[in-house]
Amino acid sequence: MATTFNFEIVTPDKMLFSADNVTYVGFRSLVGGMGIKANHLPIIATLDVAPMKLEFADGSKKSFAVCGGFLEMKGGKCTVLATIADADTDIDTARANAAKERAERRLASKEADVDNARAHRALKRAITRLKVAGMA
């Protein structure tokens, strides 16, 4: 059996998720995708808006939509600091779809008062959420 480690996702509002039988975390940092297993070197990674995948000792999997933040791995304990994070089971697909359409409309409209960067961010968030919801 693979070695397990302790894993936590913390958001400003609450401790979103914690488990101590995680064997693998897959995520995307600002420079690219990476994955860590137990006994990884101490690392601090800056996260991109992307799905985060967990694998547990019993073979089950879980994903989260993480919208930016940090991952810290240190001595058998992995902590994710996310400004916004949703578990795959908590995602409201209808809302994410609506957000995606709204963002796409904004980007397509090309009006002067559209905040392009903001619409892009919203679109990326919505797509990540939908991806994660699809995995559940």
């Binding site: 940092s29 600002l30 420079v31 990476m34 070197l41 101490p42 690392i43 601090i44 990674a45 800056t46 930016g68 940090f70 810290e72 240190k74 001595g75």
Partner: peptide, 17 residues
């Protein structure tokens, strides 16, 4: 403290942090 690896580097991490 263990010394950390940074992904990306310290500078980028700091500018987000």
């Amino acid at each position: 403290e263990a010394s950390f690896m940074f992904e990306p580097g310290e500078n980028e991490t700091l500018s987000v942090l």
